[in-house]
Design a protein around this nucleic acid. Sequence first.
DNA 1: GCATCGATGGTG
DNA 2: ACCATCGATGCA
Length: 181
Amino acid sequence: MSTRIPCSFFRRPAKEVAQKIIGSHLIFQPTRDLKYRVKIVETEAYVGAQDLACHASKGRTNRTSTMYLPGGVAYIYFVYGMYHMFNIVTGPKDHPEAVLIRAGECLSHPDLDLSGPGKFTRELGLDRAWNSKSLCSKSLYFRRGTLPLKISKSARIGVAYAGAWAPRKLRFFDPASDAVS
DNA sequence: GCATCGATGGTG
DNA sequence: ACCATCGATGCA
């Protein structure tokens, strides 16, 4: 009974992945003795080069090249001089879309506070070393979880500069979770 | 509660 | 100069 999510799942639009991934579990095993299991409770979709909030709207650069890979790899970048952001690349090759993971509940280590995208990566130790790595590997993959009763939507956080794209409801979260940022 | 602000460094 | 953030501070 495998409930692992296959890489093919991610080769669809970011807006779909962002919603379907809520309630699923990220399994992350950075070392032999350490294995995290995290329920995803908040996401945002960045939907391609036309999306003014998406890094790929500036074109293909060294940083954004990861987003042009086929869906199913991690896009991890550094912001504000101290935080990393963890994204799932989605869609087929050369469709630069991604889903930002904004918050989770750590089921294996309940004391960890994963209530925000910067805290999520900091607490789990996800940094640029994992950029472009597969999300369907032994040490890093998703499992199907329990569907939330409801998924709420809102505008994305911190993208006021994105013009007509700023107010679009591309942030998704489980309103029943205390970990939502 | 909420608004504001500094930290800190990669990116284009 | 800007930034897909956080935590501290000030004031209510």
